[in-house]
Amino acid sequence: MYEPIRTKSVHSTMAGTSDFPHRTREEELDIQLASHLAALLAVTDELRAQAPSTDLDTAAEGLARQVARLRGGTPPARATTTGPTRSAALHRRAHALAGRALVVAASRADTAAAILSAERMDAHAAALAADTLAATA
């Protein structure tokens, strides 16, 4: 009733039958974590351009170190300012990116990246709370 399969499957999972390289789960998580941290670094650089502070400078240095470590020593590209953006929107974006990085760091058991991500989430949540408080006053 059914015709037999005549061609080789493109989804073959047997060892040695694939023509393209596969990455391990750890390598995929490294790539994903480096991407989230690099995006967080870009937003941090934008915030630094709008309102320079030593906290943001320290955070940017730590993020750059983590991205370089995850990418095998390759330093991350640094963002240039894109123009005026509301700092509350940047803090919301940074908070979300730090949350994503925290989830990936936790899943790959990367303590240093998890701590840095959690610290950035706290800092951006505090900045958002201060913006909200200032807006209502």
Rank of each mutant, 00 (worst) to 15 (best):
M1I: 05
E3H: 01
E3P: 00
P4E: 04
I5P: 04
R6I: 11
R6H: 10
T7M: 04
V10G: 07
M14C: 10
A15M: 15
A15V: 14
A15C: 11
T17D: 03
S18Q: 08
S18A: 09
P21W: 00
H22D: 04
R23I: 07
T24Y: 02
D30I: 01
I31W: 04
Q32V: 11
A34F: 00
H36E: 12
A38G: 02
A38H: 00
A38R: 01
A39T: 08
L40G: 02
L41P: 02
A42W: 03
T44G: 08
D45S: 11
L47V: 07
A49Q: 13
A49T: 13
Q50V: 07
A51E: 15
S53T: 13
T54L: 11
T54F: 05
D55P: 06
D55G: 11
D57F: 12
T58S: 08
E61G: 12
A64I: 09
R65W: 07
R65E: 12
R65L: 13
Q66N: 09
V67F: 01
R69C: 01
R71Y: 04
G73T: 02
P75G: 05
P76M: 08
A77S: 12
T80N: 14
T81D: 12
T81S: 15
T82F: 08
T82H: 09
T82A: 12
G83V: 05
G83C: 06
R86L: 11
A88P: 06
A89T: 14
L90F: 11
L90A: 08
H95P: 04
A98M: 05
R100C: 10
A101M: 09
A101K: 03
V103W: 03
V103C: 05
A106V: 03
S107T: 10
S107V: 07
S107Q: 14
R108Y: 03
A109G: 07
D110K: 02
A113F: 00
A114I: 10
I115Q: 06
I115P: 00
L116Y: 02
L116E: 00
L116D: 02
L116K: 03
A118C: 08
A118Y: 07
R120Q: 15
A126N: 13
A126E: 14
A129Y: 12
A129T: 14
A130V: 10
A130F: 09
A130I: 09
T132A: 14
T132C: 08
A134P: 00
A134L: 11
